[in-house]
Nucleic acid binder design. Sequence first.
DNA 1: GTAGTTCGATTGTCCGGACATACGCATTGA
DNA 2: TCAATGCGTATGTCCGGACAATCGAACTAC
Lengths: 254, 254
Amino acid sequence: MPKPEVDPTVSLDLSVDRSSPVPLYFQLSQQLEAAIEHGALTPGSLLGNEIELAARLGLSRPTVRQAIQSLVDKGLLVRRRGVGTQVVHSKVRRPLELSSLYDDLEAAGQRPATKVLVNTVVPAPAEAAAALGVAEGAEVHRVERLRLTHAEPMAYLCNYLPSGLLDLDTGQLEATGLYRLMRAAGITLHSARQSIGARAATAGEAERLGEDEGAPLLTMERTTFDDTGRAVEFGTHTYRPSRYSFEFQLLVRP
Amino acid sequence: MPKPEVDPTVSLDLSVDRSSPVPLYFQLSQQLEAAIEHGALTPGSLLGNEIELAARLGLSRPTVRQAIQSLVDKGLLVRRRGVGTQVVHSKVRRPLELSSLYDDLEAAGQRPATKVLVNTVVPAPAEAAAALGVAEGAEVHRVERLRLTHAEPMAYLCNYLPSGLLDLDTGQLEATGLYRLMRAAGITLHSARQSIGARAATAGEAERLGEDEGAPLLTMERTTFDDTGRAVEFGTHTYRPSRYSFEFQLLVRP
DNA sequence: GTAGTTCGATTGTCCGGACATACGCATTGA
DNA sequence: TCAATGCGTATGTCCGGACAATCGAACTAC
């Protein structure tokens, strides 16, 4: 009697294209990720061992390990020495990325409207100057935006950018969000320091967001750095808590 | 005339102990990280190339690459093909970890006091049951705690845990925090889904935290999973925004 | 029946090499 | 003067192999 098949990857039609410029480990990791997302690899199931998988695909073990490792880093797989590699249960998914609010909502299917209130060059206020590492009063870009869903205000965003970093077109800003524009301008984002808090709305904030004075607001302050260590953006955002909250997943670094 | 020294790692006294059970790449990455933290490797400086570094330490290039890669993943280093590996500027540091509030404050030097208000077994409310994946009304642990700094309340924490997962000693809870207890019980934390929002304080919340009714509160809801995909904790926390905010760093995954 | 031991399976670590690819800089050419 | 080209250098990718550490289960001994 034939042993029942225990390795779910054999029925998966995995293959790599050696003539493609995309790295082999990346091709493999993408196929595995798609299989997990699609349900072909069920949560909790064990992937067959690396050696055999490598042999079946005509790859070396280091390459297969690199593919698997990238999914482990994403939190989709768990490795156990002496046991094997397991698909984590489906509840546990969705990564924490450096994404803009626009990206968040777009992914959620709600296309938010953006209204640019201010897009100009101003002398840097003390707080923005400190965050961006420029002299107080130096020229910086200031962008004020209002985010709306279903014609209702949801967030008020105020951002400062170093002058001359990129030219901010109001039309593009309303169409595509600040982070996409920076990436498109060749800026490689590296990291951001964030601070999330809450406070009572001032009269001006209340009016802008359609709340009452003293109503609770969710606030976020963020400084974003590119990979050279330059601060490329500083923003203070206020959200209506009835219409927005921060949702994300944390991964434990082993 | 001798060429000036450009590789800052040569004056660093790096060495590995091959008789140690700790992996070589980890020994190296720790020493490099210490050098960065200590300032011996200044921000923006280039690390000498991997080949030479490997030769100097008597290691192979894959091992050195693994060490460097782990620091890249932490956001401390940046690699550029054809250029070299650079130390990121010092402003950009501090990782985002799955840490408890207790850990946060301990790191900040403020030892918070914890008062356990409730530590008992209750039938699971609907919300907690859904998050933990148990039947509504099933037995779960319920822990209510008050966090104080300088004898002032700062946060009210309400947590649910699956029954039988670990025994929660009130004394230990006040001394060391929930996450440490779980780790100590052999639970390997994997990830957590968090949601941060804000709302006006109810009368009961206001009294517990020493605020006025209607005052803005910062709220956090979290479900934590271990590496088998089990939910091991569900908590709803409320913070006084004047005394606490969430600060963390996001890293861009390249 | 229970506790301790052995053993197979699997991932973890490490090696030494090879070629590809992209970046910065100097050289060359218009 | 300025743009295109070529070259050195560094990381990126990939290979095939070796041994160690650990887990789980079957097995043995008491």
